[in-house]
Design a protein around this nucleic acid. Structure first.
Length: 175
DNA sequence: CGATTTTGACCGGCGC
DNA sequence: GCGCCGGTCAAAATCG
């Protein structure tokens, strides 16, 4: 009956310069491993979509990075992942080998015993990096800028699935 | 036991 | 002024 809601919200924030990066990935699972640990902190249904939206937050020390995962209303196989903010630390999960090998796929694919935890995280990282660069100077990526700060990129938009088609479907591949 | 997840409720902004 | 929507937090529950 008694509800004590203690809300400590900062009201000084006036500008939302948080970078918003929307990703369209064709996967049945919303748990896309990008190399970071996420802790779900909320789930709400949007009116535009019949499916509820999931809110994730980085479980790191000071990483205020937020991730928003939503499913397409018409295409349940399409998952829209929106990243907000920037990471303060490198990817975690790979104890050895470094976080950015990115130059020896053959050696990487050698392990076929367990499904690759990050089949396309490098792509995100690269894209994010490019986005950051774009924010400073210019952009040259096939992305659609809906609003200032809001960028929507359709990974599946590209007809040539030779690169993505090979890693995207593998994401949901579970033995 | 710890971490993570889940649900509910509330807040803040915007529209009409 | 009120209603609606979206977003976040909090406590509790569950899993490993």
């Amino acid at each position: 009956m008694f509800l004590f809601r203690k809300k400590e919200k900062k009201k000084a924030q006036k500008r939302m310069r948080q970078q918003r990066f929307a990703f369209m990935t064709k996967s049945d699972v919303d748990n896309l491993e990008d190399g970071y640990r996420w802790r779900k902190y909320g789930q709400k249904a949007v009116k535009n979509s019949s499916f509820p939206r999931s809110y994730y937050r980085c479980t790191n020390s000071r990483c205020t990075v937020k991730k928003r995962v939503e499913r397409s209303s018409e295409d349940p196989s399409i998952v829209i992942t929106t990243y907000e903010g920037r990471h303060c630390h490198q990817t975690v999960g790979f104890p050895r080998g470094g976080i950015f090998p990115a130059h020896d796929p053959h050696n990487f694919t050698s392990h076929h015993h367990l499904p690759p935890p990050l089949p396309n995280p490098y792509y995100y990282q690269e894209l994010l990096h490019q986005l950051h660069s774009e924010n400073t100077s210019s952009l040259q990526l096939p992305q659609s800028t809906t609003e200032d700060g809001h960028v929507a990129v359709s990974s599946i938009n590209q007809p040539e699935e030779g690169l993505l088609g090979d890693i995207v479907p593998q994401t949901m591949r579970n033995p």
